[in-house]
Computed example of a mutant assay.
Amino acid sequence: MSEVVTGDAVLLDVRIAQLPVRAVSALIDIAVILVGYVISLVLWAATLSQFDSAASAAIMVIFTVLVLVGYPLIFETATRGRTLGKMAMGLRVVSDDGGPERFRQALFRALASVVEIWSLLGSPAVICSMLSPRAKRLGDIFAGTVVISERGPKLGPPPIMPPHLAWWAASLQLSGLSADQAEVARQFLSRARQLDPRVREQMAYRIAGDVLSRVAPPPPPGTPPQLALAAVLAERHRRELARLRPWPNAFPPR
């Protein structure tokens, strides 16, 4: 597990894709590109034979670059960070802030792959991924992206927002709340009914005191600690989803 800090300073718990899984994903993409490249060459062979050798060589170079850059660029832009290989392995490229990959970032990654993967047989990508704590290759460093695994263990549903605390939760500053503290609070709320009432009350005050000391403003006076924790976690989850999911009407109609 790793942490991704969103633009709202909310920490997202994500599983960074490790090198072996990314290598399999890359091999799938390479196989797709090579098959498509060979088929295209066969279909274009008759047309290319009509040009002289210099023109044919120039066309082949341009076509090769377009295939190597176009495949990841088109797929990652259209699917928001996924190629066929990544789909097969359950991976996705996201921005360092946890948001969807942008066109500019996909372009940087695609251009870098021509050098670090195709020209140098992937050795810079492997070395950089092994040295990076977040398994980044050079293209990820230049583009400001990270590859995550979407097949991690499923967590339980987030707490339900107490309606009368929604206004307070919407005003919270969550930058001081760590992922570990949020996870402790989530696990407590999920098991609270199984605990002895006295133990539950003691744990609720202790955990709520720790969590609420990291957020601002404080809850309304007299708020039960369990409800305060539920409001904080529900708002944190809401902001995560808002950051990761683009607005459906982000682009005005033309």
Rank of each mutant, 00 (worst) to 15 (best):
R186W: 07
V10S: 06
A112R: 08
A106K: 07
M1Y: 09
V61R: 12
I59L: 15
V146K: 02
V199C: 03
I74T: 07
A31Q: 03
R80N: 11
L155Q: 08
G209Y: 03
V94R: 03
V94A: 05
S190N: 10
D140T: 08
G85F: 06
S53G: 10
S49K: 14
L165D: 02
I141M: 13
I148P: 00
I62H: 04
S119V: 15
Q105W: 03
V5K: 09
L241R: 13
R245M: 12
P219H: 05
R200W: 02
L165P: 06
G98P: 05
V14C: 04
S213Q: 11
G139V: 02
E183M: 14
S53F: 13
L68I: 14
I141P: 03
L111F: 13
G81D: 01
R151N: 13
I117Q: 10
M130A: 15
Q202T: 11
I117P: 02
G209D: 02
G122M: 10
S178H: 06
Y205R: 15
P100Y: 02
A110D: 01
S132N: 09
V114D: 02
V69K: 04
A106H: 06
S178G: 15
S49C: 03
F188G: 05
L241D: 08
S213C: 03
A110T: 09
D140G: 05
R193W: 07
V35M: 10
F51K: 00
I160C: 01
L73H: 05
G81L: 01
P220N: 02
A17R: 02
L12G: 06
A234F: 03
P248F: 07
Q50A: 15
G7L: 13
N249M: 10
I127E: 00
G7E: 12
V114Q: 03
A170Q: 13
V199Q: 11
Q202I: 13
Y37A: 15
V61M: 11
M87C: 03
R92V: 05
R191Q: 13
A88Q: 01
A166N: 09
S56G: 13
R254W: 11
A57I: 10
F108L: 14
I39Q: 08
M87G: 04
R22H: 02
W118P: 07
I33Y: 04
I28W: 06
S213K: 08
E3V: 15
L244I: 13
V215P: 00
S95C: 09
A250L: 12
I207Y: 07
A182N: 11
L131K: 08
I141K: 12
R243W: 11
D97F: 00
A231N: 04
I74E: 00
W167H: 11
P162R: 07
V147K: 05
F108D: 00
P220C: 01
R134S: 14
L165S: 05
V215S: 01
S123L: 15
L241E: 10
W167T: 14
P100V: 06
G99C: 04
V35Y: 08
Q173G: 09
P157A: 09
R15S: 11
E201I: 06
G156D: 08
A125N: 02
A250P: 01
P224K: 04
A112E: 01
L91E: 02
S95V: 07
D29E: 00
P20K: 08
L155K: 07
L19V: 15
R15M: 07
V93A: 11
